[in-house]
Each structure stands twice: as structure tokens, then as C-alpha cells.
């Protein structure tokens, strides 16, 4: 009775996956050089945004539907900007953008919209 709808659970799972991949990329692409702080910071920002997205697909989520969609686009924007600036590896950036798009697809579903707007 208290279980979450399938699309909400899927959104949470995909978002968690994005966060975990960001942390893995942080460890994989770490190089002890001057620029590494920026690279690590951006991977951590990406992880925080993905984990934040995961938080919205839970029972006591923090954002409305509009805010969820905005943060979804913002997450993709941050990953795309970091990749375009050369801080993220091309394949890691492409994978994270693809995960961001999947989250947005879940967020755009009418049932997700209804659930996020009526959760209170």
C-alpha cells in the first residue's frame, strides 16, 4: 500500500545511478595536478545534483514537478558545460547526459507530474 509507483521508483533508481557514476568518474579520472580540484569539484557537483534528483523521487520529496524538471535540465546543463569545457571525459559526459535525459523522460510522464504535484 505504501510502495511507490513504478515510474517514481525508476526515476529514483536512475538518479542514484547517475550519482554513483559521477563518484566513480571522480575516482577514475583523478590526477594529482593543479587542475584536479576543478575536475573533482565538478564531478562532485554532478553527483550532488543527481542525488538531489533521486531525493525528489521519494515519498517525502522536496521539490514540486516544475522544480524537478528545472533541476533535471540544470543537471544536464552542468554536465554538458563541464564536458564542453574539457573538464569531463567525453564518454563520461555523454553517459551522464544520457542518464539526465532518462530522468527527464521519467519526470515528464503525466503520472509522475500528477504524483509530484499531489504528494503533499
Amino acid at each position: 500500500m505504501n510502495s511507490l509507483p513504478g515510474n517514481i521508483s525508476a526515476g529514483c533508481g536512475i538518479s542514484l545511478l547517475g550519482g554513483v557514476i559521477s563518484i566513480v568518474c571522480l575516482a577514475l579520472f583523478f590526477e594529482p595536478e593543479e587542475l584536479s580540484l576543478t575536475i573533482m569539484g565538478l564531478y562532485m557537483l554532478s553527483a550532488v545534483l543527481f542525488f538531489g534528483m533521486a531525493g525528489t523521487f521519494t515519498k517525502n520529496s522536496q521539490w514540486s514537478w516544475k522544480m524537478t524538471v528545472f533541476m533535471g535540465f540544470f543537471t544536464i546543463g552542468v554536465v554538458a558545460a563541464s564536458t564542453a569545457a574539457g573538464y569531463f571525459e567525453m564518454y563520461a559526459g555523454a553517459l551522464l547526459v544520457a542518464i539526465g535525459v532518462l530522468i527527464l523522460i521519467v519526470a515528464m510522464l503525466p503520472s509522475t507530474k500528477k504524483w509530484l504535484n499531489n504528494k503533499y
Binding site: 533535471g72 535540465f73 540544470f74 544536464i76 554538458a80 564536458t83
Partner: peptide
């Protein structure tokens, strides 16, 4: 929201290109 969101992604990407 979808149209506005794409604009946000484009602007963020251009910031990355600028850097």
C-alpha cells in the same frame, strides 16, 4: 517547460565552450 529547459542546457553548454 521542455522548450525553456532546452534553452537552459544550450546556455550552460555555451558557458563551457567559453571557458
Amino acid at each position: 517547460e521542455f522548450i525553456a529547459g532546452i534553452t537552459l542546457v544550450i546556455l550552460c553548454t555555451l558557458i563551457g565552450v567559453y571557458i
